[in-house]
Design a protein around this nucleic acid. Structure first.
Length: 275
DNA sequence: AACGGTCGCAACCGCACACGG
DNA sequence: GCCGTGTGCGGTTGCGACCGT
């Protein structure tokens, strides 16, 4: 016999969240914190299951979320961490304060995977794709390696240009070389520490070389296995130093564009005062 | 303008794990 | 040690936006 579902789904709403639902959830959590996700929707007056509320909070409403495109530095770090950790997205995400595992996973699947394939690297093993793989994997790999035939340009025929690709229409040979050099350096770090095994401390030097994160930062964020509230508060404390909560309020305000947002803003300022 | 194909992201699903009684 | 419950995680899907024909 299997587990009971997290909630009885009869009468529960599914699909995209409305602004009103976001409002209710955020308002509830800011006022009451998170004790038990199962009770959250009931108490917040939502027709959602607790799991759905949790996901919405973590992936979208959390105040410490960092939105916007991934930087090249972040991408490189993701690749490096993925080569060491595999598809353990939550572990990878823990190195990127403000980024969610879902976000990183999506970014990996939609962008980085392609980027690696374009460069002739297997996104799973992080090794160069061999001729055998070529034959084994058929079309998929075939596409990824076709850049070899092209003269000085590593772009391959794409079904259509994405926004990113429009900004960077082609991956030039020099850029690709830089990327590969970068990549090698990153992986060299991995190889050196390969003997340490996956569960041991990551290479601090590599991570600290980044301007954006450090082990200390991420460990602070992870310090409480309980997760959410602690993570939020520590980040909020950081944000608070530079008026971050105000920035978040501005961001959420513009993002959600509620007519009746004043009420929530008051709540948020109260929230800010607590930190 | 209409249509079909592709992409990217948000959300869902189901399993695994942790924890308390 | 077993069982029930809550939560976390990774894989997958649905759907709107965008683009080419």
């Amino acid at each position: 016999m299997g587990r009971q579902p997290c909630c009885d789904k009869v009468g529960l709403k599914r699909g995209p969240w409305t602004i009103e639902e976001d409002h209710k959830l955020m308002n509830f959590i800011l006022n009451n914190g998170i004790h038990c996700w199962r009770t959250v929707p009931k108490l917040a007056g939502l027709l959602r299951c607790g799991k759905s509320c949790r996901l919405r909070w973590i992936n979208y409403l959390r105040p410490d979320l960092k939105r916007g495109a991934f930087t090249e530095m972040e991408e490189n770090q993701i690749i490096q961490l993925h080569s060491r950790l595999g598809n353990r997205w939550s572990k990878i995400a823990s190195h990127f304060p403000g980024r969610t595992d879902n976000e990183i996973k999506n970014h990996w699947n939609t962008r980085i995977k392609k980027k690696l394939k374009q460069l002739g690297l297997d996104p799973i093993t992080h090794q160069p794709i061999t001729e055998e793989d070529h034959c084994k994997n058929g079309d998929e790999v075939d596409q990824t390696n076709s850049f070899k035939e092209e003269e000085g340009v590593l772009s391959k025929v794409k079904p259509r240009d994405t926004q990113e690709q429009r900004e960077q229409p082609e991956l030039k040979f020099e850029e690709a070389t830089d990327f590969l050099l970068n990549y090698e350096l990153l992986l060299c770090g991995n190889l050196d520490e390969g003997v340490r095994g996956p569960n041991q401390e990551p290479d601090r030097s590599i991570l600290q070389s980044s301007n954006t994160i450090s082990i200390e930062d991420s460990s602070q964020n992870q310090s409480n296995s309980n997760g959410e509230s602690n993570c939020s508060s520590s980040s909020l404390q950081e944000h608070n130093n530079g008026g971050g909560v105000q920035q978040w309020v501005d961001r959420v305000d513009s993002m959600l564009s509620w007519d009746g947002f004043d009420f929530l803003e008051q709540e948020l300022f109260l929230f800010e005062d607590r930190f």
